[in-house]
């Protein structure tokens, strides 16, 4: 299996451990990653200029298309953004034409076949749960993990086709594959609060807090994430609080530990 790795803006700048652990785990599982000169996925500009958003996303698709590769991203916001751009391009021929013209100035063109995937489905369905279970040599037996789905990967399901939007199991399956226990928690599909943190920090904090409290009350020892924005929101909003924070862990870190990889190679202390 071979993918163009789309890291987006957040991971290299703020969460290099996610890149490290993703590369380490996928490398071990036989997934080849290729680096391309991608740009911003377009998400940040979507609130300002819809077409600029599509153009930015489309350029990334074009780069992948030129290299003949599908795209794998560990970021759920980038994932949603690229998928949305594909939808907008598919349903609006006039837009498609304008974007095509923009890309043509650089000698690029819109691909028809590029598939955008998130890290988790690639693991669960591409590599496969059996192969993952087989690769686990140090199962995390007894560890109670709350899996946080992340809105932009799960919804809208007709665009993201990530898993069943109301009763997904993909992330819990992956948690169980590491030997850990996936806890049931009512707020697992809720928003982490990050997208509104800049506009309304107190509101965002209430959303985050509700989730963390729920995970804790449901008996979780670890909150597992697979998106840099969710992950940093959980760690940052808990920092400096009165209670000891609920531990957060990126899924490839959890899996990497279960596969017996050295914590250092996963960006863990």
């Amino acid at each position: 299996m071979k993918y163009a790795l789309f890291l987006g803006c957040k991971i290299p700048a703020a969460l290099p451990a996610y890149e490290m652990s993703t590369r380490a785990v996928l490398g071990r599982l036989g997934v080849t990653l290729v680096d391309l000169p991608f740009n911003c996925c377009g998400n940040p500009v979507r609130s300002v200029d819809r077409e600029a958003f599509v153009v930015a996303a489309a350029r990334n698709l074009a780069l992948a298309g030129r290299a003949g590769l599908d795209v794998l991203t560990p970021c759920k916001c980038c994932f949603g953004s690229l998928r949305h751009a594909q939808r907008f391009l598919d349903e609006d021929p006039a837009l498609r034409q304008r974007v095509q013209a923009f890309l043509a100035r650089e000698g690029l063109s819109l691909p028809t076949t590029v598939v955008v995937e998130h890290l988790l489905p690639v693991l669960a369905r591409g590599v496969g749960l059996d192969a993952i279970t087989a690769a686990v040599t140090a199962p995390r037996t007894g560890l109670r993990v709350a899996a946080h789905y992340g809105c932009h990967a799960l919804r809208p399901s007709d665009v993201t086709r990530f898993d069943h939007p109301l009763a997904p199991t993909l992330f819990e399956d992956l948690v169980r594959a590491t030997g850990a226990t996936a806890v049931e928690w009512p707020r697992r599909l809720d928003c982490c609060g990050d997208p509104i943190h800049d506009a309304n920090a107190p509101l965002a904090d209430r959303l985050t807090q509700a989730k963390v409290d729920d995970a804790r009350e449901s008996g979780a020892e670890v909150l597992a994430t697979a998106c840099p924005y969710c992950h940093l929101r959980f760690t940052e909003s808990q920092a400096g609080g009165a209670r000891a924070p609920l531990a957060t862990m990126l899924y490839p870190q959890l899996l990497g530990l279960a596969m017996g990889l050295a914590p250092r190679t996963l960006g863990l202390p």
Binding site: R46, S47, V48, D49, R50, H84, C151, H152, L154, R155, P156, S157, P165, L166, D190, C191, G193, P195, I196, A204, L207
Partner: peptide, 26 residues
């Protein structure tokens, strides 16, 4: 709006509520 797409996912009439919210911002 947190752009969580809960509304859009759940709308019985298939209305793209979140997509519209984002467009309104633009």
């Amino acid at each position: 709006c947190a752009t969580c797409y809960q509304c859009q996912e759940h709308c019985p009439e298939g209305i793209r509520v979140t997509d519209v919210m984002l467009e309104l911002r633009g």
